[in-house]
């Protein structure tokens, strides 16, 4: 790559080496400061309360793995993990299927209301999610969906659809028309084209949508806070927030519960780093 010349400074070679070294040290320090709160979280999860208080900067003297299992039990983490998984998977399935279908229609067909519909979906990306919480609460209450999985699945899907549609449609518009025409001549119907050609072809776009959706649904707090009050239906962020205030003096247990809770997203991040960073950035720019 031609990155070499892009550095904003390029004096003598010795100087360049020294300044590069200093910069790398600075960058490393910055990264350490950024990651420190996480490091503190993970190490505190294995300490005793007394140690948490008196030696916050050190590794635990004895690694208390039982903190994790106790936190799991006390915070009912199992239930909330199951709830979060159900809600996330259902919302993802709906978002991907409906989003891809709508994107296929919007990207490959010409019809009268097309521009209007695109504009309508674009509008959804400008509306701050929180501003619809009160009316949504009232509406969900009226149709008796409060305190059900649907109270989360349907709004999650609705708010993720614009992004899903735009990312997928952008991907589908560049596929040559001929492929589709050939399939039509062969007698494949539109559904066949959608399921056997468009879905597989848009897989890269859909996987970006899926990763972003996973992070958004899994981490959502505001919707869960307002639409869910039954303990049996609480998602991970919601039960964490309750747990943290309810057990506020047993810090190590809260830290342990949070450690369990962040593992799925951190593992996802480590696995799909590039995709997540690019996708979240693209998502932000679109929004």
């Amino acid at each position: 790559m031609q990155m070499e010349q892009k550095l904003p400074f390029s004096p003598g070679r010795g100087w360049a080496k020294i300044s590069r070294g200093l910069i790398n040290i600075g960058l490393s320090l910055y990264a350490i400061v950024t990651l420190y709160p996480l490091f503190w979280l993970f190490t505190s999860a294995f300490k005793t309360n007394e140690e948490f208080d008196s030696r916050p900067f050190y590794l635990p003297e004895v690694w208390h793995w039982d903190n994790l299992s106790r936190a799991w039990k006390v915070s009912a983490m199992g239930t909330s993990l199951i709830n979060s998984t159900i809600v996330t998977i259902a919302s993802l399935a709906l978002t991907l299927l409906l989003g891809a279908l709508a994107a296929y229609v919007l990207a490959r067909f010409q019809f009268r209301l097309k521009a209007f519909l695109m504009g309508l979906f674009l509008l959804g990306m400008l509306i701050p999610i929180h501003s619809t919480l009160v009316p949504l609460f009232i509406m969900l209450k009226k149709v008796s969906l409060l305190d059900t999985y649907w109270a989360l699945i349907l709004p999650y899907t609705a708010f993720e659809l614009p992004l899903a549609i735009f990312v997928t449609a952008a991907f589908l518009t560049v596929i040559p028309k001929e492929i589709e025409e050939a399939a039509l001549i062969d007698g494949t119907g539109y559904w066949g084209i959608f399921f056997r050609m468009m879905l597989p072809l848009s897989l890269p776009a859909l996987s970006t949508v899926a990763i972003l959706g996973f992070l958004r649904f899994w981490n959502d707090f505001a919707f869960a806070l307002i639409f869910i009050s039954k303990p049996a239906l609480k998602t991970v962020p919601l039960s964490l927030s309750v747990f943290a205030t309810g057990y506020s003096t047993d810090y190590k247990l809260t830290m342990a519960a949070m450690t369990i809770a962040v593992i799925p997203t951190i593992v996802a991040f480590l696995m799909f780093q590039e995709q997540i960073m690019k996708g979240m950035t693209a998502g932000a720019v679109k929004g």
Binding site: L38, F221, L240, A261, V262, T265, I266, F269
Partner: peptide, 10 residues
């Protein structure tokens, strides 16, 4: 980038 993937509750 890491903090971006954490739940804001955490």
């Amino acid at each position: 980038f890491m903090p971006m993937v954490l739940s804001s509750v955490v």
